[in-house]
Simulated scan of single mutants.
Amino acid sequence: MKEVNTKYGGLTDYLNIKMHSSDLPASILLTGYTEFETPYGTLIPQYEVEDLGRKEHKYILFHSNGTVRKVPLQNEQDIETKYGTIASEMLLFYNDGTLKKLFPITGKLSGYWTEENEFALAKDLNLALPSGTITAKAISLGFYKSGIIRSITLWPGEIISANTPAGMIETRTGISFHDEGSVKSLEPLIPTAVETAIGTVEAFDNDPDGVSGDINSLNFDPAGNVSSLYTTSSKVTVTIDSDTEKTYQPTETASLCSDSVKMAVPLKIEFIGNKVRFNQSNDDVYDIAECSFKIEDYVADLKIPCYECA
């Protein structure tokens, strides 16, 4: 088989290669033992599946400049970070070779190998962060190029207590950080009262994305002010003048499982400079200093979204 040259040496045992150009690979499936020398040590990319019930043979991906972009590892390897040594099964890199994201465990979910099986194998990570020490089972950790943690994606069902500008908040799904280490965003476990530029609002998203800890429903700016949130339990009445007011609140939609079951669609509130915007609409933006705001409980007999119909 024709040898493929990379920044990490020649590759001869492979399948299904795709190229960025005539001499730079974009993706490749290795079938033989190979070593990649990186700033994070000698990596052994995955070249075979040891356990057909769990592992999946994954491609190595490269940036267009030849630097590796994604490396699934043959076996768990210890990776040195600013937060200590973390055992990992897959790594993502920026195009300058610095670590972008690591995955402590990367099994193949199937009818024979479930999310619960993966969770049972996951190990608690103890991370000493500027916002406090976090102990959790993580799906992935994201990093800035500086090596500072950018985000933590938590396993479903995993809950941590996060020290935030709004106090300690019980957190699920994910949490992200500014590049100096302060909390940037998180996903509250339950409706949680936070102070904003227009008053106290209960932050909560009943159906968070949950794909990545980088994106969450409660967000803080670097100064610690709430910059945006979702709420399913607060409504806001804006008074523009003595004759004009408008109320914003969560809406309702039918469940995917039953038209008779209603679910909340959260109200999104953003704070942009000295203005507040509702539901990402440029027609619903108000100068905070020129308006008054009344915040009340929004109460409805609504359910958490369900995607498994009985």
Rank of each mutant, 00 (worst) to 15 (best):
A162Q: 01
N163V: 09
A166E: 11
G167Y: 05
G167A: 03
E170H: 10
T173G: 06
T173P: 02
G174D: 08
G174C: 05
I175N: 04
I175P: 02
S176V: 08
F177V: 04
F177C: 06
F177Q: 04
F177K: 02
D179C: 12
D179V: 12
D179M: 13
E180Q: 15
L186G: 00
E187N: 04
I190V: 15
I190L: 15
P191N: 07
A193Y: 02
A193H: 03
A193K: 06
E195G: 13
I198M: 00
E202S: 07
A203L: 03
F204P: 01
F204L: 04
N206C: 11
N206S: 09
D207G: 09
P208Q: 08
P208A: 07
G210I: 09
G210R: 07
G210P: 08
V211T: 12
V211H: 14
S212I: 15
G213R: 05
N216T: 09
N216I: 08
S217C: 14
S217W: 08
L218D: 11
L218M: 09
N219E: 14
D221V: 11
A223G: 13
A223C: 11
A223S: 15
V226P: 08
S227D: 14
T232Q: 11
S234E: 04
V236C: 03
V236F: 01
T239W: 12
T239H: 13
I240Q: 14
I240L: 13
D241W: 12
D241R: 06
D243A: 14
E245Y: 08
K246F: 09
T247A: 08
Y248T: 06
S258H: 14
D259Y: 13
D259N: 14
S260K: 10
V261C: 13
K262D: 08
K262M: 13
M263R: 13
A264I: 05
A264R: 05
V265N: 10
V265E: 10
P266V: 03
P266K: 03
K268W: 11
I269F: 07
I269R: 05
E270R: 11
I272R: 07
G273K: 00
G273L: 00
G273E: 00
N274P: 05
K275R: 12
K275M: 12
V276M: 02
R277N: 05
F278H: 03
F278C: 00
F278Q: 01
N279Y: 06
Q280F: 13
Q280D: 15
N282V: 14
N282D: 15
D284W: 03
D284N: 06
V285H: 01
Y286G: 00
Y286I: 01
D287K: 01
I288R: 04
I288Y: 06
I288W: 07
A289C: 05
C291V: 00
F293V: 02
K294A: 09
D297A: 10
Y298P: 04
A300P: 03
D301A: 04
I304V: 15
